[in-house]
Write a protein that binds this DNA or RNA. Structure first.
Lengths: 226, 226
DNA sequence: AAATAAAGTTAGATTAATCGAACTTTTATG
DNA sequence: CATAAAAGTTCGATTAATCTAACTTTATTT
């Protein structure tokens, strides 16, 4: 693995395509979506798709859908692994806030050294999840897939533990920080409001709190832990 | 500081020019020397010197010598600061060998985040020297200049402490590792052999050892500490 | 100091990544 | 289903970094 060297740009395309394919399993990964995610123009994406096809990292015919090959997917997963391990380092070791780690990890993920990542992982004690609750693939590319659902799906009376977020925008993360909700926080659903899909919840020593549907849609929870 | 963004390549040129100017204070920093250090051709260097002159990071007229401006020097020192802090991290925290840290730090030094470096420095407890004994500039660009000389200059009978190396090639560093000489090792010069400039030394519980002039020329020592 | 060598520069070409504008294909909609 | 809108592609151009080959300037040496 990791035999052929890719440019930062190529790596970013692979990662973007991987993530888009994951996110929208129903819809095809399209030129425009890639362009938007990578902040470039569709014409540039077309060129790059050609290039990556030649390198056998994805399959693609013009006007048709894009799909990563085994090799391309492996590369993408490895980049995600690096990204998430660095996020753990930034958050746990250097004490960066939840919302500050992404941009720096975006740069660090391209550092090229297998050894570095193995040792970093060991130093961090083999974390399974990053600070946003996203799973960190192991060195052989496997994800630890824990049972997760959104808070919005939770039944009344259920006790749950926050394991991640879907929205990772600073505004959302900072709001969570303000509420003192973080990974690991235990939440109980007191009531479901049928009218607007909002929920009344409590957590830790908090008073009752009404949270919007939009809010609860973006909180990932598990109830397998207790 | 650090207002304008430079490419990796530009940063590498600045660093190379800074280091060459430091090393050979007597001789001018020349196109060919830069080319050799950066592993590129002289013609490429000429182009880059023009570009960096336009950006006011150095002064240069064709066929004349190159000199960094205040701004260029600040940038270079900041890159060296990053490089050396990362080396400390790799060595102290991730337990990489003395000889393994350079290449990875060469990549990490280009990561762009003032905060990251400040926090890394704090995490590492504000180290003053990197694993090779080279001083780490502080955030305001100042070096802690300790009294240093080479082992070859040491008088008979003197006790000294290793504070760094001049040669950082893997073969030399690995030899030191084998001998169990590292930063901090205390050495006593038993005898100076006039014939070939070699020295007889002892350190820790070692037996007497004869080391060549070439060897002792590349060990930096201080006797200010005890 | 003239000739030769070494160092440095210029010019033209190449590769990677990007863009805008014009064009083509696919999809959606009346 | 014809046509307009959306999506995607092609083409020519640009910028950064690099090279080679030819040329110029500076340094060295007899």
């Amino acid at each position: 693995m990791a035999q052929l060297k890719l440019s930062f740009t190529e790596e970013n395309y692979l990662k973007a395509i991987y993530i888009l394919s994951e996110k929208d399993k129903l819809f095809d990964t399209s030129t425009n979506k890639i362009a938007e995610r990578i902040n470039t123009k569709p014409s540039t994406v077309t060129d790059m798709l050609r290039k990556l096809t030649l390198k056998k990292l994805l399959t693609y015919e013009k006007y048709k859908k894009v799909q990563l090959t085994k090799a391309g997917e492996q590369m993408a997963v490895f980049i995600i692994r690096k990204h998430r391990l660095w996020e753990v380092f930034l958050h746990n070791t250097l004490k960066f806030g939840w919302d500050e780690v992404h941009d720096i990890a975006e740069q660090l993920e391209h550092i090229n050294s297998e050894q570095l990542i193995l040792r970093l992982e060991k130093f961090l004690k083999f974390p399974k999840y990053d600070p946003h609750g996203d799973p960190i693939p192991s060195a052989n590319g496997k994800f630890d897939q824990k049972q997760r659902s959104t808070l919005s799906e939770a039944e009344k009376g259920k006790s749950l533990q926050v394991v991640g977020v879907k929205d990772t925008s600073p505004v959302f993360l900072q709001y969570l920080e303000q509420l003192k909700i973080a990974i690991g926080t235990k939440i109980k659903v007191i009531e479901r409001i049928a009218y607007d899909g909002s929920l009344v919840i409590i957590f830790k020593d908090s008073p009752q709190l009404n949270v919007s549907r939009k809010f609860s849609d973006n909180i990932l929870v598990s109830n397998t832990k207790f």
